[in-house]
Design a binder for these strands. Structure first.
Length: 563
RNA sequence: GCCCCAGUAGCUCAACGGAUAGAGCGCCGGCCUUCUAAGCCGUAGGUUGGGGGUUCGAGUCCCUCCUGGGGCGCCA
């Protein structure tokens, strides 16, 4: 895996020091050396503005500093040209030979060519999904699971050891309400005139599940004591119905999990007691108004105190979150924990950070990744989603109608901090023109070329990559080596949306190559392509297939051989 | 009232503090006897919500105002 940016930054730093030793530059502290990709080819493959930033410390014109740095730049075989341009940039152009070698390197290293070692094996847990388990996932949660799953892929590629977790909130009042609602639907299915609780879950899905349970179990739960019946329905509803549907929806979208963590286990295994004791010892708990409070206001006057144990004796959600995160960071010892949360939970972030401090943990070990909520447009109207009111579009339904790859791409192509509108009608209607198909089409075309090559007996074996000198070929190679930088950017900023843009750019460059450079000899007439060039281009095309497939894989999408 | 996020082309959205702000969709016009036309080429479209400031340099950082979304519960 090439680390061009890092090598360049180091070399620039070295050159400045050398020039300073030779008294060609005055002594000054070298600032961070930013390496960027210029927008125009006339500025080379990479550029740095470090001389512009240094000008005020060096008390010299940026152009003059740049000239001195270039003079002392260490010799390398992978750079062809180093130039200076106004108002003081240093521009670097990669050697053609080095670029061509990367094709061989990609073929040799395969899909892991672009992986980096940013994480150095650190153990990170990404928790995503984790909706209240009281019904099927709605569309809005698609954004949550797609961001989380893709981020996990990216961090894995960036050298972290990743665990993917779903937190099942199977304790608390919402579950109780769910059980009562399900009981009512079950009873109604058997002809009993039992009303839904006032704040109960109204969704159609509960009526279906009630019906199913009535068919499977008959009047069993009507005859049982109410408490016992509610417990049984809660268990059946949660394990069989809710989690069953969530697992199915995730699977349909290609969302993977390594672990499903049940909230109730925090109580049954003593985790909850342990953390409460810790907080008590640190004098952060206070009994007041019949409840027990976490006195966050003593830690930070921006914060309000928070109830941890309600006057009913039941722990509140914040209490279980403390225990849960203690479990992740201390008991299970993850170096870093990332929770993917919707913007409706943002108010919870400062409390969680304060809680980390209260437990004596470094707050940076916990990242709360907040994504802005999705607004749904259907039939030209904005729809408000509410599971309890039953107005929802189910994620599974969306996946069936629009297709998993298109759904993922749609949710993925926006930065997490920007609001997005999902126009369901447009997504269905335009599924053929969705950019995801553009990327997949490029992959399918490559597969087609390779099939055709085999049928005609053309082979890449012995292909000489130094024949790959056409501008379209070199542009493709340049884009391929960029994937490492994209993975890094996505991992550092927790911004998986960069992948979608990269994928489109790579596909575009392949399309241009396809237009300008024939791979296989023409069947009839001339001019054709020499055998040498065919072999070299087959190597290039195979490499592109690897990088494109890897990019699609990181986004959790399929790389079709035919379309 | 206080806190968080956003405001960029007709629409949906990009842009590590860097050079001339970019894509897709949509509009209009071209290109299939040749490896997949789900493709390619061309045209049009912008005072980056308004106003100040910091900086060699601001869509990006700071202040302020306006607009939209979210939060401020013994729900999660």
């Amino acid at each position: 895996m090439p680390r061009v940016e890092q090598d360049l930054a180091l070399a620039v730093r070295k050159a400045v020091r050398k020039a300073q030793q030779k008294k060609e530059l005055p002594r000054f502290e070298v600032p961070e050396v930013p390496i960027e990709r210029p927008k125009s080819v006339e500025w080379g493959d990479y550029a740095t503005a470090v001389c512009l930033a240094s000008a005020r410390w060096a008390k010299m014109a940026p152009m003059d500093i740049a000239a001195q740095v270039v003079k002392r730049f260490p010799k390398t075989d992978w750079l062809a040209e180093i130039t200076v341009s106004h108002p003081g940039y240093i521009n670097f152009t990669l050697a053609t030979g080095w670029l061509q070698e990367q094709v061989e390197a990609i073929l040799a290293q395969g899909e892991r060519y672009s992986d980096i070692d940013l994480g150095q094996g650190k153990r990170v847990q990404v928790e995503y999904g984790s909706a209240n388990p009281t019904g099927p996932l709605h569309m809005g949660f698609g954004r949550n699971v797609v961001i989380g799953d893709t981020l996990a892929n990216v961090l894995d590629a960036a050298g972290y050891q990743v665990q993917r977790e779903y937190y099942v909130n199977d304790a608390g009042t919402q579950m109780g309400l769910f059980a009562e609602s399900l009981f009512a639907r079950y009873a109604q299915a058997l002809g009993e005139p039992i009303q839904l609780p006032e704040d109960g879950y109204q969704g159609e899905y509960l009526a279906c599940w009630g019906q199913e349970i009535a068919e499977e179990h008959g009047r069993e739960f009507l005859e049982a004591p109410r408490e016992q019946a509610l417990e049984a329905l809660k268990r059946i509803g949660l394990e069989e119905k809710v989690l069953g549907s969530i697992r199915a929806d995730c699977e349909a979208l290609g969302i993977r999990y390594d672990n499903w963590f049940h909230e109730t286990s925090l109580y049954s295994e003593g985790q909850f007691e342990t953390t409460m004791t810790m907080l008590r010892q640190r004098e952060l708990l206070e009994a007041r108004e019949g409840a027990v409070w976490f006195t966050a206001s003593t830690l930070n006057d921006q914060l309000k105190d928070e109830v941890v144990i309600r006057s009913s004796g039941e722990p509140g959600y914040f209490a279980s979150d403390i225990a849960y995160h203690y479990n992740k960071l201390v008991e299970r010892g993850f170096d870093w924990v990332i929770d993917v949360w919707g913007a409706d939970h943002q108010g919870h972030v400062p409390r969680m950070k304060a809680m980390m401090g209260a437990l004596g943990l470094d707050p940076d070990r916990l990242t709360l990744l907040i994504y802005q909520l999705v607004t749904i447009k259907m039939g030209g109207e904005d729809i408000r989603l509410s599971k309890r009111a039953g107005t929802m579009v189910e994620l599974g339904e969306l996946t069936r109608e629009v297709g998993a790859d298109a759904v993922r791409f749609n949710f993925l192509s926006r930065a997490t901090e920007s609001q997005m509108e999902f126009d369901v009608d447009l997504a269905k209607e335009q599924s053929d023109r969705n950019p995801v198909y553009y990327v997949q089409y490029a992959h399918a075309r490559i597969a087609s070329i390779l099939r055709e090559a085999e049928a005609r007996g053309c082979s890449p074996t012995g292909g000489d990559v130094t024949l790959l000198a056409h501008p379209a070929e070199l542009a493709l190679i340049r884009k391929m080596i960029e994937l490492s930088a994209v993975i890094e950017k996505a991992a550092v900023n927790l911004a998986p949306h960069h992948l979608t843009y990269y994928a489109q750019e790579l596909a575009t460059l392949f399309s241009l190559f396809y237009r300008d450079c024939r791979v296989l000899p023409r069947k009839t007439g001339e001019p054709g392509v020499t055998t040498d060039k065919t072999a070299a281009r087959l190597k290039l095309v195979e490499a592109v297939k690897i990088i494109l497939a890897r990019t699609l894989d990181l986004m959790g999408m399929s790389a079709p051989e035919r379309m």
